[in-house]
């Protein structure tokens, strides 16, 4: 089941690659979509756990941060009732490593609301997390960047969605939908 999930997730990001690269070109070096796709493509055939396979392939700082998110969704697929807890642990770890918090225009602006929503409403955990992640990503459009290269560009990226928040919201909603569909199948 997990192997199939990672193949589907990779295919989803094949479709998103150029959009993510374009978003990243405004505030960074324009390779966020390609970097994520590279890491996700390494997962299905690797002997390493998904988060480690992803990190080994991507190498850079964003690889270190996103591999933590991959580790959380990997646990979520196995044990969806604790999804909120996994997302919360991941967001704490990313926040500590990246020295960032909610509102800094980063992937945390999608991840933290998703983790909170999922904890607040365990019954509808997956729907709520998915919705909150997407809304959180949208909110980054009006934020000035506080971290990364984005803070040095004109207006600190105001007017553009943060590519890391967008990709995070896509990963979270994709995994939420996948688990829901799988759960319905087994009912």
């Amino acid at each position: 089941m997990k192997e199939k999930f990672y193949i589907l997730l990779k295919e989803h990001f094949i479709n998103l690659e150029s959009k993510l690269n374009q978003l990243d070109a405004v505030i960074g070096d324009g390779d966020h979509g390609s970097t994520l796709l590279k890491g996700l493509s390494a997962i299905p055939n690797s002997e390493l756990p998904p988060d480690k396979a992803f990190k080994a392939e991507t190498g850079g700082a964003s690889g270190s941060l996103f591999s933590i998110l991959i580790g959380a969704i990997d646990k979520g697929i196995e044990n969806s009732s604790n999804f909120g807890e996994f997302l919360t642990n991941a967001s704490n770890r990313i926040s500590m490593i990246g020295e960032a918090k909610e509102g800094d225009k980063t992937m945390l602006d999608a991840l933290i609301p998703a983790a909170k929503a999922s904890l607040n409403d365990p019954k509808n955990s997956l729907e709520e997390a998915s919705l909150a992640a997407r809304e959180g990503a949208k909110k980054t459009v009006t934020m000035p960047a506080k971290k990364g290269r984005a803070k040095y560009v004109e207006n600190a990226g105001i007017g553009h969605m943060d590519p890391g928040a967008f990709s995070t919201s896509e990963i979270i909603s994709f995994v939420c939908n996948y688990i829901r569909i799988e759960n319905e199948k087994t009912l």
Partner: peptide, 13 residues
């Protein structure tokens, strides 16, 4: 520096 902080702290964890 950002990359050093992120990768260094991740390695420590």
């Amino acid at each position: 520096h950002e990359g050093d902080v992120i990768n260094g702290k991740a390695a420590c964890l």
